[in-house]
Nucleic acid binder design. Structure first.
Lengths: 150, 150
DNA sequence: TATTGTTATACTCTATAACTATA
DNA sequence: TATAGTTATAGAGTATAACAATA
């Protein structure tokens, strides 16, 4: 098979990624006791690995408007998954953190989802898995940046 | 590098696919004159390649409830992108079809999105593209089925 | 009675605009 | 005056339940 063009690659991505996303979404949602949307899941994950992120930091990274993120944090707070503290030297800012319950839920959701996804990947041979992981590593830096790239 | 486990593969997918999806979504939405959601885009695409699909056929394939799809078809109809005709031998069913305008819009959206995506893929070498396309071909059959597979 | 599709209703997610508090 | 965040409001998108028409 001859090497595919960029356009062919793009076409394949456009076909397949929504299918994978649909599966992931349903699996995250049904994640044990979790019931997190993808955005909530990613938000918890980002806060948990960041150092004292502000609301703006999180909104930027996840790709949501500030009001939307404010509202989402409200929800996560009322579920006891995150806490807000005022920044000591700039009282306009808030510092976000994930509670123990939040960490536990995040891990449970990740665990459940990864297990289900891994099951979906079951038919892949060892060599196939290497191909897939190699491809994902190639793609990550291309899609990790800000969305403005057009 | 040793071959990754199913779980590692799953973890990579879970990290990366939402990022790619976010990019695709923004690119489909800004697709020239198109302004289609991913679901609308996929719906138009599915109808255009199917033989006289019913509403249920389309809802099943896209993974939406019947009412939701009914509403989406309403919108696409009022934009002049699809037509509904009554099935000749079963008047309960409708037969969906994409209009010329719909085909044109679908192609424009696909074209624009693929071009933008191809640009995003720009840094990939010929060999890299082969790896990515191979991986996508491996993944397609795993995610193409009904969502119930868990 | 079962099937196909639509209508009624409600909930989630997201955005823009207006506002408050702080710098 | 500028920045960080919240509140008010509105619009998409989706679901479940109830309904109508046809088989």
């Amino acid at each position: 098979m001859s090497a595919p063009s960029h356009a062919e690659c793009a076409s394949e991505l456009l076909d397949l990624v929504p299918l994978i996303m649909r599966r992931i979404r349903s699996q995250v949602r049904s994640g044990g006791t979790a019931d997190l949307s993808i955005a909530q899941f990613r938000t918890l994950a980002f806060i948990s690995i960041s150092q004292e992120p502000s609301l703006s930091d999180v909104a930027d990274h996840i790709g949501l408007s500030l009001p939307s993120m404010s509202k989402m944090i409200d929800q996560l707070f009322s579920r006891g998954l995150v806490v807000r503290t005022t920044h000591p030297s700039d009282r306009r800012r808030i510092i976000l953190d994930v509670t123990q319950a939040g960490k536990k839920l995040l891990e449970a959701a990740r665990q459940t989802t990864e297990t289900l996804l891994a099951r979906t990947l079951g038919p892949l041979s060892t060599q196939d898995r290497k191909t897939v992981c190699d491809a994902l590593h190639l793609l990550r830096p291309l899609f990790d940046g800000p969305i403005a790239a057009r």
